[in-house]
Design a protein around this nucleic acid. Sequence first.
DNA 1: TATACTGTACTATCACAACTAATACACATA
DNA 2: TATGTGTATTAGTTGTGATAGTACAGTATA
Lengths: 119, 119
Amino acid sequence: MIILDYKDTRPIYEQVVEKFKLLILKGVIQKDEQMPSVRSLAVELSINPNTIQKAYAELERQGYIYTVKGRGNFISDSKNLLDERKEELKNRMVLLYKEGKELGMTKADFIGRLQEMEE
Amino acid sequence: MIILDYKDTRPIYEQVVEKFKLLILKGVIQKDEQMPSVRSLAVELSINPNTIQKAYAELERQGYIYTVKGRGNFISDSKNLLDERKEELKNRMVLLYKEGKELGMTKADFIGRLQEMEE
DNA sequence: TATACTGTACTATCACAACTAATACACATA
DNA sequence: TATGTGTATTAGTTGTGATAGTACAGTATA
């Protein structure tokens, strides 16, 4: 279901969180579907169950999944999460622009680069 | 000359590098001007000289400053560096856009947000 | 009820990075 | 020569990421 990148310098649990966030936001895994169990995913990825546990705890904290003790972890409703994520991306772009502005760049510099890409 | 943010989770030496890169690119410190000495800056920021040393080594590696043993660290010519930095910012924005595209966002979403800002 | 799944909690240990601390050495210059 | 530069080295502290092992509690089902 997910693949780890060992060249990536980020912590493993962060990668796991990131991958699942994408799968959930893109709708690949849907509302109330069951997540792989902590132990099975640990075996599949050849890492320690505690690391998966940490990733799941983070996903729950951020509202992406919910836990039912003794049964497993399940996907939350991601409608609002998707909108929040889109806002976050736009805000990060504004921060980039502000950084560029300090160096003498204009909106047109950024917009131009976007427009010259194929959609 | 610079101020550290202890709420920032990044390493101190990275913050020092970042702050000086901005000062140099913006022309606040100019070509051949002298950097504060490792020891004096360490005292000023109340951190260890080795940490400053690490930051300066990184700045030199990236071409922002040059070292004269026994005399001090001095600012390099930043003409090309500025252009490179602008390119880097535009590339980071492209990455943001690609991330958003996976979630169903369009160029217009990003461009719109930029345009509704006052210049 | 017994068994086998779930998640959760805790402790111990290892590795590594960031940072501090102290010291020593080499070069430049007034 | 004295003082201020950068550089190098070694040692120790702290925090984080990850592994390892164990134990416990809730759920489902044969």
